[in-house]
Design a protein around this nucleic acid. Structure first.
Length: 94
DNA sequence: GTCATGACACCTC
DNA sequence: CGAGGTGCCATGA
């Protein structure tokens, strides 16, 4: 794994504004990651100190393993989820 | 080298 | 809108 890319991804996640969200694909495209999967890997391994809850899947639903906690954190920032699904059209970053 | 796994995305039906 | 199949790529056995 390229360390520079690793840092770029962390930086991109850090740059997501409070009250907004981004998809794994968005972060991947913005950082040049070869695949959205890489983003998920970085978050799971080294995302504990990042606003990881602002990164969700393209469907608007958070990743399964942390879905419950993620929705709470988002709700605390003003990102409302309709039946576990975030309105990307409204909250998607840039 | 092959095979399986996973905080994913996209296309079809 | 959803379910299923396919593509994707780093990692570890």
């Amino acid at each position: 794994m390229d360390e520079r890319l690793h840092e770029l991804i962390r930086e991109a996640v850090r740059s997501v504004p409070r009250g907004r969200v981004a998809t794994y694909g968005d972060i991947a495209a913005r950082t040049g990651a070869s695949s959205p999967r890489i983003v998920g890997k970085v978050l799971s391994e080294d995302g504990h100190d990042l606003p990881w809850h602002r990164v969700i899947r393209a469907t608007g639903r958070p990743a399964e393993p942390v879905a419950r906690r993620q929705l709470e954190l988002l709700r605390a920032e003003g990102v409302l989820a309709d039946d576990g699904k975030v309105d990307l059209g409204q909250y998607r970053w840039r």
